[in-house]
Design a protein around this nucleic acid. Sequence first.
RNA 1: GGCGCGGUACCCAAGUGGUAAGGGAGAGGUCUGCAAAACCUUUACGCGUGGGUUCGAUUCCCACCCGCGCCUCCA
Length: 506
Amino acid sequence: MALRFYNTLSGRVEDFQPLEDKKVRMYTCGPTVYDFPHIGNYRTFVFQDILRRYLKYRGYEVMQAMNLTDVDDRTIANSQAAEKELREYTEPYIQGFETDRQLLSLEKPEFLPRATDHIDDMVKLIQTLLAKGHAYSSDGSVYYRVRSFPEYGKLSKLDFSGLRDGARVDSDKYDKDNARDFVLWKGWKEGEPFWEAPFGRGRPGWHIECSVMAMQCLGETLDIHSGGSDLIFPHHENEIAQSEAATGKPFVRFWLHAEHLMVNGEKMSKSAGNFFTLRDLIQKGYRPSAIRYLLASVRFRMPLNFTMDGLVQAQKSLERLRNFRYRLTMEEFEDGFDADLAGKASASTQAMEEALDDNLNTAEALAAIFNLVLEGNTAMDQGRFRAGNREAFLDALERWDRIFAGLEDNDYAKLEEYGLIKELEKPIDGSTISGAKEFPAPQPGSGDGGVIRTVLANAEIERRLALREEARGRRDFGRADEIRRELEADGVILEDTKAGTRWKRK
RNA sequence: GGCGCGGUACCCAAGUGGUAAGGGAGAGGUCUGCAAAACCUUUACGCGUGGGUUCGAUUCCCACCCGCGCCUCCA
């Protein structure tokens, strides 16, 4: 079966084929850098990453652009409150996003344009729209004339046929010909950042940046454009109107929208206050890889209810996969090749591919790899697994990991690299440090929060491990078990295997 | 009201016109110095409700109920 996606524009699942043979031009709506994104935002970004990775897996060359919105009402309001220049204010959040991106194993898009780097291009597009009669100036601002684009509403399926010109809702409140018209350029207000334009000093409206940067980076017709479902209207509807009115060409062929992350049955959002940032969760002791897994484990078109229990389950699921790979790598098997097992690995991969081909059915793709884990573990326990089977199983895991990026247990290494955790040592007889949270969560507006958690240092773990080994050598199991319990309290799990003691962090 | 998403076991969650994947959790067992990991057994006669079509529906059709989102802040 062919690769296929649900296209919001048609309302159907359609076979996917890029415009240009194996090259996919993809634009994904990125963050507004007025604060740290919350994990609802990251649900969409993780979906986009899975999409990107799978397209590459399928042999496409992916050209992805993700915008960084660094000028809008919120960035301006927050920078004013912080008494900082706009760029000075947004820079730490751009850095923070970059850190989060790497923590969540989101591949770097080919283009990460900042809105304020493309004001000139926005001005040009607005001029084009003015020249073609799709826009008009009014009181220092420029508005898009929705009536001039008959197809307005085709994406959101909203019916605007009742639109009438001149039916001003409130002439004092709106300087628009019609209440549905939206702003392309906001006339300057005292104290706000501004740019000069032929139609007056001001700043861009919300939607124009995406049209401009998408076309600038990728051309006038995109294969894929995606974002959260709350962007369908007005944001993406307006992007279509702007872009297609200006170029006369279809703007986007496939519109893919992710459903929301929910908390207690409500959409997670900044305004509702029911949100967690990535840093909030790391501080509570959860791992970025578990967060990514949880966000990826449900198909993007399904609402996903976020719970801490869900995160724990995700972490344990990942652990099962990692344990399996560890066993596959470390255990010794008899030479030879078990024919019965031979087909299992490729069958699992094929099942995974069929699931992902089907509009990115990630839940089913996960089932495919877990079925392989069971096959493998059972065969090993029964002594049927042979050395010659190892490579195919590892290959299936590696293929899975190219999409899901969860096999590597590297959360702590990354957190340390980005200065988000600090390793502590303490004497073995001291009190435990588990749950040590002496660092406050970063406050909105404070920029990158720095260290937010502490963990036991690797060297200290190794030292205690040696003490335990020594105790076990004496068959002093009481002492050995005591050390094991202490380590567990400090967030370290031990596993005694034939190859020695393996440790890992919770 | 319009448009859209969803309602499957204790939790998360696939799925098909032919008798319910997978993960987590619980219980019992195997293995282990003990654990952990892993394996085995076990936990939905049932898939929001009521009709209909059919030899047969969780899966198709109709109606209804419930939760949620969007309808110019929003991933």
